[in-house]
């Protein structure tokens, strides 16, 4: 799938392999794919992940302190995985490999 679909669709798709991913990994992948370079856009993608998690489609499985400034120095990094509900919603959204 290309960058022609809404960002949240793409984020869910990235999680469909069932693996856990850190928020900064997903954010930088989306930034690259959609050509979103600014810090504001970076935070907006991260907020999309938070929204998906609060909607029950992703689960926050692990946290660590960002000591090295991978994303934002001194803040928390979150690791997520997709939930069953997230898979159901992904299939509603016609994502591949559900």
């Amino acid at each position: 799938m290309s960058k022609n679909r809404p960002i949240k669709f793409r984020i869910l798709e990235l999680f469909l392999n069932g693996k856990e991913s850190w928020n900064y990994e997903i954010v930088s992948k989306i930034q690259e794919e959609y050509g979103m370079k600014s810090n504001f856009q970076r935070d907006s993608i991260n907020f999309d992940i938070i929204e998906l998690a609060s909607g029950g489609m992703l689960k926050d499985v692990e946290q660590k302190v960002d000591d090295n400034g991978i994303y934002k120095k001194g803040f928390l990094l979150h690791k997520y995985m997709i939930t069953d509900f997230g898979r159901v919603r992904s299939s509603d959204a016609c994502l591949r490999s559900v």
């Binding site: 809404p6 960002i7 856009q41």
Partner: peptide, 18 residues
């Protein structure tokens, strides 16, 4: 202001699921 016209069009196109 938020620079979201691109996302607006992408979302509009997903008529069936969204």
């Amino acid at each position: 202001v938020l620079g979201k016209y691109g996302e607006l069009i992408r979302t509009l196109k997903e008529f069936h699921p969204c």
